[in-house]
Design a protein around this nucleic acid. Structure first.
Lengths: 336, 336
DNA sequence: TTGAAAGCGCTAACAC
DNA sequence: GTGTTAGCGCTTTCAA
C-alpha cells in the first residue's frame, strides 16, 4: 500500500524532533541553516510531500474552492469554469467541480459535501429547482465565503456577478422587431431563476418601446429549462398551431434555444417563416440550422470575476460588509 | 467562523464519551438502544455531519475519486462524467473533477494534487500532449488504483475501457465509399493518442477492403486536436486547394469535426461537393450545417464502466492481478 | 454497555 | 536553536 514519508519519519531518521523538521521544511527563521540543509536534502531524497489532509484538519483551510453548477454539458458553465480555474490556479487554489443536473436535492448534497470537505469558499450558480435557500443561508451565516454567479439570488448578501440579462433580452427582441417581426413569442426558462425574470422584463420592455402589444398567449414556460426536450417541442408545436401564430420566437435560455431549433427542424419549419433569437453560449451556435441570432454571455470573464471576489472574501483579514453585484454586458450576434 | 458540530460537542452535551457517541452514530452493536436513540436525535438536532477530512486522515480513505479529463467543454467527456457520477454517488463516493486542457503539465499537477488529496482512485483520459507516463507509473506502483478510459495507454497494466475506434472509423469510411466517394481525405488527431492510430487503421482497412488506394497526401494531422481552429482550417483549405482534390473527408475527432464544418462553411463549400463523416458526441451534431454523418461513442456507459472497474479495484480485499480492457462499440449515424 | 487513551500528520504554544 | 506537548475530529484497542 502507498505510504508516503511523513515529518515523523524524517525526524526519526535525522534524530530531530518533528517540530524542528516542520519548521525547517517551511524555512522557519528560528532554524539553523545547517539543520535546514540536512532536512531539506533528506526530504527531497525520500520525496516528502506534505499531507494536505492533515493540513486541512489542522488549519481549517484547504486552499481549494468548491464550484457548484447545474450542468457541465452546458457550454456557458464549462466556459465559466475555465475562467475560474485560470485565476484559481494562479493564486494557488485548487478547484473541486460538482454538478447538480438542476436538482435541488443534488445541490444540497454537493454543497454540504464541499463544506464538510472544508473548501475555503463556494462559487455557485443555482439550480432551477431550488426554492429553499436555508442550507446556503446557514453555511453563509456560519462564515463560509460564498459568491453567486449567473443564477444569483437576493436572499443572501454577498458578492455576486451575473449578466445584463435585461439588456440582452431587450436587444435580441428588438432585433427581431427591426427585422419586421411583430408577433414574437417567448420561450422562457424555469420561473424560480433570477435570470428568467430579467429576460422576461427585457422582452416586454422591447415590445412596449416599439408599441407592440404584449400577448400572454405567446409566452411559454419551460420549467424544466430545456432538460426535457419534449416540453420544448410541445410548446413550439402548440405556439405554431395557433391560428394567429407567431412570426418569431425569442428564447430565454441556452438549452431551450437548442431544443427549439431541433423542434423547428423536426416540424419542418422554414426559417423564413419563423425567425428565432435566443440566449446561447454554445461554441457551435453559428453552425446550427435553422440558424438563430443569439445573445452570448461573457462566461469566461464571469468565472474570473466570481473567483476574484471569492478570494477577496477568503483572504480578507477583516470581515467584509460592503458587497457588490457586478453586471456584465452581453453580445448580440445577428444572423448574417 | 464556520464551525460545525463535532462528536466531542455531542459527547459533552449528552455527558457521554466521544467513543460512545461515535459508536452510536454508526449504529455499533455494543451500544444500547436507548443511548443510540438519544445520540441520533441530538445529532440530527444540531445537524451533525461527520468530518470527511478527519475521516480521511484516520482511515487513509476519502470515499472520493479523482477524474482527470482533457476538456469539460468536450461533450464526450461531460457525458462520460455524468456516467461516472451516476454510479459513484450511488455507491457513496464523491467525485473531484479536473481538466487539463490537453496540457501535460496541467495533467501532472492535477494528478498529483488528487493523489495528495488522498482520492481513493483515479479515472483518467490522457491529454494529447503527454508522452511521459512516469508520474502515473509511480503512483500506480505505489498502490493508487487507476483506471483509464477512452484515451488509454499500454504502459500501465490495469483496467481500461475505450471505444471500438477501429470499427467506428471503418464504418464511417465505408459509408462514404458506399455513397460513391472515392477520394477520401483524413483529418487526424494528435498522433500520441491511442485512439488516433486505431481510427487511422480503421480508415485504411476500409479503403483497402474496397480497393481504393491509400494516398498519403490526403492525410492531415491536426496535432493540436482541434484546440486550434486555425490548424484545422489550414488543413482543410490545403486539401481542397489540390488539383485532384478529395470528394469526402473523414474526421477522426469530435473537436476537429466541428472545426472542419466551420472551415467548410467559411470557405463556402457545397456539402454536395464534399461529403464529411466524423467522430462526434456533440449533442447538437444533428443540427449542424454543413451536416455530417457521425460516429457516436457510448460516453455515458463508458463512464459507468470505468467507475465500476475502479470501485472494484478500490474495494477489493486482495490485490487484483487480472485486468481487462473493455471495448465498447460505436453508433454510426448517417445523414438523412 | 460505556469510557480512557492513543494515534492518523501536522503545527504552534510554550518550554529549555 | 531545538524539543515537548497538545490538539484539529475521528476511530479503535483496551480496560472497566
Amino acid at each position: 500500500m502507498y505510504k508516503p514519508a511523513t515529518i515523523k519519519d524524517i525526524a526519526l531518521a535525522l534524530k530531530l524532533s518533528p517540530s524542528t523538521v516542520s519548521r525547517a521544511l517551511r524555512d522557519g527563521y528560528e532554524i539553523s541553516t545547517a539543520t535546514k540543509k540536512v532536512v531539506m536534502e533528506y526530504a527531497k531524497k525520500v520525496n516528502y510531500q506534505s499531507n494536505p489532509i492533515a493540513l486541512s484538519l489542522k488549519n481549517r483551510r484547504s486552499y481549494s474552492i468548491g464550484i457548484v453548477v447545474p450542468k457541465l454539458a452546458n457550454s456557458f458553465f464549462s466556459q465559466a469554469i475555465a475562467g475560474i480555474e485560470s485565476i484559481a490556479y494562479e493564486r494557488g487554489y485548487h478547484t473541486i467541480i460538482t454538478q447538480t443536473h438542476d436538482s435541488s436535492e443534488r445541490e444540497l448534497i454537493n454543497v454540504n459535501h464541499l463544506a464538510q470537505r472544508s473548501v475555503d469558499g463556494l462559487l455557485i450558480s443555482m439550480s432551477a429547482g431550488t426554492s429553499d435557500y436555508g442550507f446556503l443561508k446557514q453555511l453563509h451565516n456560519d462564515g463560509l465565503p460564498i459568491v453567486f454567479f449567473d443564477r444569483i439570488i437576493d436572499e443572501i448578501e454577498t458578492f455576486k456577478v451575473t449578466s445584463d440579462n435585461f439588456s440582452g433580452a431587450y436587444n435580441a427582441t428588438e432585433s427581431l422587431i427591426k427585422s419586421g417581426r411583430k408577433k414574437i413569442a417567448l420561450l422562457s426558462n424555469a420561473p424560480q431563476l433570477s435570470i428568467t425574470n430579467e429576460r422576461l422584463s427585457g422582452y416586454m420592455k422591447a415590445l412596449a418601446d416599439y408599441h407592440i402589444p404584449f400577448r400572454a398567449e405567446l409566452i411559454r414556460n419551460c420549467s424544466k429549462g430545456g432538460n426535457d426536450y419534449q416540453e420544448v417541442e410541445d410548446a413550439v408545436k402548440d405556439l405554431l398551431a395557433a391560428t394567429d401564430k407567431p412570426d418569431a420566437i425569442f428564447i430565454s435560455s441556452d438549452r431551450i434555444s437548442i431544443s427549439c431549433i431541433r423542434a423547428l427542424k423536426s416540424l419542418n419549419f422554414d426559417p423564413k417563416e419563423i425567425a428565432i433569437a435566443g440566449f446561447s453560449n454554445s461554441d457551435v451556435v453559428d453552425l446550427l440550422h435553422p440558424s438563430l441570432s443569439y445573445v452570448k454571455q461573457k462566461s469566461f470573464e464571469m468565472g474570473q470575476i466570481a473567483v476574484e471576489m471569492l478570494l477577496r472574501l477568503i483572504e480578507s483579514k477583516y470581515p467584509i460588509t460592503e458587497f457588490e453585484t457586478k453586471i456584465l454586458d452581453t453580445e448580440l450576434h445577428l444572423i448574417k
